[in-house]
Amino acid sequence: MNPLSSINTPINSGAVLADAYGVSNTQTGVGSTAGVQAVNAGASAPSTNTAANDDSGLVLSGRAERAQKIEAMAKDFFQDGSFSSDKLPNLIQRLYQDGILSDGQLNRLTNSGFDIPPAEDQSLADFIDEQRATLTNSGEDRELAGTLDEAKWVMRTMDSIQSPAVAQKANRVASDITALLDSDRTLTDQQKNQYQGIKSLMQLASMTGEHQQATGQLNSYLALAKQH
C-alpha cells in the first residue's frame, strides 16, 4: 500500500503529490503552467464593480467553476468505465490542482489512513461485475452485493460529487469495504487490492462532497485564486 502519510513534506503543492506517486506533470498535464492557464482560461478578470465583488457573487462564481471542473474530471476519468486503481494518483493530483480537494482535506485523508493499493489493470467496474456474479443469496453476500451496487452507482455519478447524497453514499461504501477487509472473509491478494481501490475512491468522493456551505465555497474559491 502507498499511504498519503508516506509524504514527509506537508501537502501544499501538486508537485509534492506528483513526486509522491511518480506522477509527472508531463504525464498528466495538470501541474504544468499550460495546464494551470487552461484551468483558469474561463475565469474573468477581477472587476472594480462593487456588486461584482460582493461575497455572494464570489460564492456563486466559485460554485459554478467548481462544478464545471468536477464534470470535466468525471468525463476524463469515469465516462468510459475504465477507471482502475492505478489511476488513483492521477485522480488525486487532478482533484488537488483543480481546487476540488484542499490541503486540509488531503491531510485529513492522510490522518484517516488513506491507502493507494498496488496497481491492478482490471477496471474497478469490471471487478465489481465479476464479484457480483460469484455472490450467493446468503445474507452476507446480499449485503456485499448492495455495497458493490452502491459503489458502482457512485462511480457513475462522479460528476455530482458535490451532492451531499453522493458523498454520504460514498462514505457508507468506504465503511462497508473497511469492514469487509477487516473480516474473516477469504480474499485473494488481487481481491484485497481491488477492494482497497474501491475504498480509496469512495474516500476521495466522500471528502470532495463535504464542503457545501457558502462560507466553505467562498474560502475554497479565494484560496484557489491566491494560488494563481
Rank of each mutant, 00 (worst) to 15 (best):
D98W: 05
D98P: 00
G99P: 02
I100H: 01
L101Y: 09
L101T: 13
S102G: 06
S102L: 06
S102E: 08
S102R: 02
S102W: 06
G104T: 10
G104K: 02
G104Q: 09
Q105L: 09
N107S: 11
N107P: 03
N107M: 11
N107G: 05
N107D: 15
N107W: 05
R108K: 09
R108W: 07
R108H: 11
L109F: 11
L109N: 06
L109V: 07
L109Q: 04
T110Q: 14
T110S: 14
N111T: 12
N111M: 13
S112N: 10
S112C: 04
S112L: 08
S112H: 03
G113W: 05
G113K: 07
F114M: 07
F114A: 03
F114D: 05
F114V: 06
F114Y: 06
D115V: 13
D115I: 11
I116P: 00
I116F: 02
P117W: 10
P117C: 13
P117Y: 12
P117M: 12
P118Q: 15
E120Q: 15
E120P: 00
E120D: 14
S123H: 01
S123K: 05
S123F: 01
S123I: 04
S123D: 08
S123W: 02
S123Q: 03
L124N: 04
L124D: 06
A125C: 08
A125H: 03
D126Y: 01
D126R: 08
F127R: 08
D129W: 01
E130L: 13
E130Q: 14
Q131K: 14
Q131C: 11
Q131M: 09
R132W: 04
A133C: 02
A133F: 04
A133I: 05
A133N: 11
A133Q: 07
A133H: 02
A133G: 02
T134W: 01
T136D: 10
N137C: 01
N137E: 15
S138Q: 04
S138K: 01
G139Y: 00
G139F: 00
G139D: 09
G139E: 10
G139L: 09
G139C: 00
G139K: 03
G139S: 10
E140F: 00
E140H: 02
E140C: 01
E140K: 08
D141H: 04
D141V: 10
D141W: 00
D141G: 06
R142W: 03
R142V: 15
E143Y: 01
E143N: 12
E143S: 13
L144Q: 06
L144W: 01
L144P: 03
L144M: 10
L144I: 13
A145D: 14
A145M: 05
